[in-house]
Design a protein around this nucleic acid. Structure first.
Lengths: 344, 344
DNA sequence: TATTAGCACTCTCGATGCGAGAGTGCTAAT
DNA sequence: ATTAGCACTCTCGCATCGAGAGTGCTAATA
């Protein structure tokens, strides 16, 4: 579809534009890269590339800038080239080592990771905690709280700790609650939360008229206590991206701040990535789910053992340094995987 | 220090500038307000006000804009006039009523409050959860977690629920932990966390060589479990303020985003307000603690009964609509107070 | 046939100039 | 003490202009 020479020129243009966000001219390419081509030839190639949709021109008589398609081709070629080559910059390793000390609480770990990642990369960085849906039930405890309220504390094998305030009548004493939690803990230990929800639904249908009140109440309480509509989302580095030349325009800033304020949407995208393996790159409006026109996401799942459980990544302008971003995200995800896997 | 007429003119200028962020000229004032003064007179007054530091001029031959001092005078006069007149706009009441339904969890309540408040006011809105320092210990429970870890769950009388992951050796069984929590709960019930910390410090000094291991360990564990350096801070509405004309400049946006990324700083300011009564207004760099040059904070503590426990407020450009902001913040704080007081 | 040199053309960008408009400060009259 | 009048200042929008960068096309070249 594209001969090798054209592709090389395209990549050169993308790389040049990434280094410096100004339209790239033909002569720059011939000077900077030794393709042994004259500017005129490069111009012809560029015209072709534009026709095929890989480049665009802000106006006649300006150089070319990559389209999303252009970036995509660039990223794909990159991928096969340097795939998963960890970034050996000492500062990244330093950062990662600093994080080693906080392996106790997974949310603290993720929060600190995103913070440092954004400072390090100058991009927005994001992470989602292990998905509650697929998490493995370890145990649940109920603590009587003020009035008719009860605090349910859920622990999962992945290390998640989730609180939920429930309103059960005031007739259930702490003793009753302990009986309920004992029952649930023995019944559900080791199942994933999504399985448990299914079980509960079945159970509720079955026991509709049966009335072992304590158990049926336990089931009902549990259904509520295990329902967490959203996983935790960590975002850091807004101040960082404001420094990029791509955000010298107020409109652009509004767009990105809208994109990250819509946490629900963000989570959807990241959770999809949480389920898969390796680094994913989503460029601009590629993924029609997101109204992230103008931004790209480089993200990877992190795992516990062999099982992907969450996701960490970076968001930047489409003009972001993909090669570095991919390497950094990959390194970070591997680091998280190692910490989460080793901690047992 | 300032005669009544000058003050009226100043307030008129401030009000005009708040309505529309353009330097205010003398003739506008004479036309819009019926002071029965000629533009020339107003010009003289304006020159005086400028000399005294209440107004400034972007350039000769432009109108005047208020300085921080000018806003301050304006706000003070406002204060004595409409102090604590609740805002009767039906939409605010509607908003507040929607919030009534989530009185279960205080953090959820605060989060939703800030969200709605920002949408309603078009300013950034902030809130801090009840200060852990002054909160009243209700009980603590320890749950064995993975490996040598324990999850401490702290409940306070104010309704706070705090988790902390601790690394105690792996030799303490759940049974031991229960003994410890029973001891702590009977010992500390009803004390404020800050008192408890003091008690613990004394206890630790005393028992240095004594070695009732379980109790001394309990004390040590408790010291760690009760230490929460930061209260929760809720901020919402960044996208809202971007719409204001005051933030059409990228530099301004950077400034405000820096101000809110520094949560530590923000908390310091808000915690001070949490301790006092009524609505406070901090204009620009007035409070030298904050590098919030260019922004103002309108905030009020909310209470449980008669005791201020936390704080809610709004941040906007110095050119914000103080009158409305004060009313809205006041209404919101009173609403929170009512909900938190009634819920028992 | 693919490449290239040459050249006219187009478009942006910064500098410059200019006039309208808004608003001031000062002075002299009320 | 207030005000009318007026000269003055400054911004802002608009148009003009030339330099510079980069293109597309054509004709020559290997």
């Amino acid at each position: 579809m594209l001969n090798e020479r054209s592709q090389k020129v395209l990549c050169a243009i993308v790389q040049t534009y990434i280094n410096n966000p100004e339209p790239v001219g033909s002569s720059f390419i011939t000077k900077r890269y030794s393709f042994n081509l004259s500017p005129a030839t490069v111009r012809n190639i560029m015209a072709d590339l534009e026709e095929q949709g890989f480049l665009s021109q802000p106006h006649t008589s300006a150089g070319r800038i990559p389209t999303d398609m252009g970036y995509r081709l660039f990223v794909n070629s990159l991928h096969s080239e340097i795939e998963y080559q960890p970034d050996n910059r000492s500062s990244l390793y330093k950062m990662v080592n600093e994080l080693e000390s906080i392996k106790d609480d997974i949310n603290t770990l993720l929060e600190e990771t995103t913070k440092r990642l954004s400072v390090f990369s100058h991009y927005l960085s994001v992470a989602v905690s292990p998905s509650t849906r697929i998490s493995t039930f370890n145990r649940i405890e109920f603590l009587r709280h003020r009035g008719s309220q009860v605090v349910a504390v859920l622990l999962t094998d992945e290390g998640l700790i989730k609180n939920k305030v429930l309103d059960v009548g005031s007739d259930l004493s702490q003793r009753h609650l302990n009986r309920i939690s004992e029952y649930l803990n023995s019944e559900f230990h080791g199942y994933s939360l999504i399985e448990i929800r299914a079980k509960i639904i079945r159970e509720m249908a079955k026991e509709k008229d049966l009335c072992d009140t304590l158990i049926s109440r336990a089931i009902r309480i549990c259904k509520e206590a295990l329902f967490f509509p959203y996983d935790d989302l960590f975002i850091a580095g807004f101040a960082e991206v404001l420094g990029l030349p791509d955000f010298s325009d107020v409109e652009k800033i509004k767009e990105i701040s809208k994109a990250i304020e819509d946490k629900h949407h963000m989570l959807q995208i990241l959770e999809k990535i949480s389920d898969t393996d390796g680094v994913k790159v989503i460029i601009g409006a590629e993924n029609s789910i997101m109204q992230m026109k103008g931004f790209s996401l480089v993200a990877s799942s992190y795992k516990e053992g062999d099982r992907p459980i969450g996701c960490v990544g970076m968001i930047g302008p489409t003009r972001m340094d993909y090669s570095r971003a991919i390497a950094v995200v990959n390194t970070t995800a591997r680091f998280l995987t190692r910490v989460l896997t080793d901690r047992k």
